[in-house]
Amino acid sequence: MKITDAQVEYVAQLARLELSPEEKARLRDQLNSILEYMEKLNELNTDEVEPTSHVLPITNVMKEDRVEPSLSREASLANAPNHEDGHIRVPKIIE
């Protein structure tokens, strides 16, 4: 399977990335070489192997339903490019 320019553009759009034509070409080639490498796996018969989602042999890591103090609002908002009256302010989102 070959990654096309259109697919690179589509994925970039989903990730909200703006790419120059040179970047698109470079990423297309890089993605293709990654996929080619992955093709090697297809040489193996994995019919009896369950897909791995986690490599650790651990299940059921849970916490009790207990409240602890949150971050101070000042700290939470410190990373926001813009904020007003305790809210993070972003360009208008039209729904």
């Binding site: 939470s76 007003e84 009256d85 305790g86 809210h87 993070i88 302010r89 972003v90 360009p91 208008k92 989102i93 729904e95």
Partner: peptide, 18 residues
């Protein structure tokens, strides 16, 4: 929660409460 500008402050902004 998103609050749109016309309901709070600047009409050309949206406000986020996490």
């Amino acid at each position: 929660k998103l609050i749109h500008g016309e309901n709070l402050g600047d009409p050309n902004s949206s406000y986020v409460d996490l």
